[in-house]
Nucleic acid binder design. Sequence first.
RNA 1: GCGGCCAUAGCUCAGUUGGUUAGAGCACAUGAUUGUGAUUCAUGGGGUCGCGGGUUCGAAUCCCGUUGGCCGCCCCA
Length: 434
Amino acid sequence: MATFQTLPGFREFYPEDLARRNFIFRLWRQTATSFGFAEYDAPVLEPLELYKAKSGDEIEGQLFNFTDKGGREVALRPEMTPTVCRLVGAKANALKRPIKWFSIGEFYRYERMQKGRGRCFFQFNADIFGETGPEAETELIGLLVQCLCSFGLTEQDFYVRLSDRNLWFYYLGALGLDDERIRAVLGAVDRYEKYGDDAFKGYAEQFGEIEAGLKGKVLAFLQIKSLGALTSLLEPLGDERIAARLADWRKLLGNLEAMGLSRFVEVDLGVVRGLAYYTGFVFEAFDRKGELRAIAGGGRYNDLVGKLGYPELPAVGFAIGDMTFALLLEQRGLMPALVQAPDVYCVIGGADERLAALGAIQSLRAAGFRVDYPLKDVAFGKQFKAASEVGARLALIFGSDELAKGVAKLRDMNDRAEREIPLAEVVSAVRDSL
RNA sequence: GCGGCCAUAGCUCAGUUGGUUAGAGCACAUGAUUGUGAUUCAUGGGGUCGCGGGUUCGAAUCCCGUUGGCCGCCCCA
């Protein structure tokens, strides 16, 4: 006999699971809308080339790809960014700026399963196109914070680490490093938190052991936790690009402070977000306890739309993954019990009573009430038990006595009070009792 | 792709040095007689013990393989 297993890393959503998922999506959607972001959606299956163009050939091993019946190389989307760049890029000159879009979708990566990571997962994505200034970052970090706070999470639960890839480039450039070396140093920075000095091994293999003075400066830069310290270290260098960058930092942090979000945001140059395509500010949200992987991440990617063959269009975006986020909510006891209780549960005496009940049930449902009833004849006691178990607030009783009088009995399940209602007035009686 | 641990009912798990028809709790269903939510009681369905092979008179148990899961490494766009 054949038995079928769920494909490894994939998830099934039984009603309780889907209720939790919907709860999360509903709040994300509501929050994004309140920030003036418009929702979009796009195909799950994309040309493989779309991802290669962005990240190179080696990316292929990490995604679900195959050749379709038309001979096309295709892949299930591993992220939203290239797709949204295409959507925006294709109409770049027609869309009103700034372009503030969000989506909630499922993504697929061919990876090993781990806590908070599967082969399919949902992400909330938000992006702003067409704005070069830190006002865009302000909006997105504000949205990110609110997307978590909407669930009752506070600054004691999570924080956002803010960094800047441009600043690293300018600073290391001012120290005399070429682009290749800068990238290698950033690779080390990315790993330093985890591996300590071993993080510089990659650099050493490429360029020889890192010079002690340089390493010291890198580590000192990594320690910086405030705009003041950043400024006093960098201003003396007299570099114009650095000065402009510092102005952006002041603006962004000032904006966030004005939004009352300073307590969520920390300057932390240890975040560099891989090496792929980020061009300026980058940020990641983490739980304060440091037990989970990143909750959200994002940054500026001013070159990507152009790289995909569309007009140059500056962009910033971030994504929140659903798995780690749900773990965090559960850890903090912020996942509510999501029961879908009916307003009214009907108790039905027998075949004739059922006919009378069906009419009332239909009217109540048409009026928008949630109504349920037993599909088979069951003893009265069982029906009341069922009404209680499903959490109905009212029981509407159709027995032979009531039928004879042309009424139904409405019972409040909390205080157990009952009263008789003419069948014609059932809808208004229920409305009054809820 | 690599390593460690694990796999018995829908769920949590027992199962003796290898020994007859494989167990409990919870959950589910039916009933305790047909008009009121609790507790209780009885009964029942449901497992080829993840799958395949091997050792043995005999395997849930021991061995090998495989698939899947958990955790870590690599990766994390």
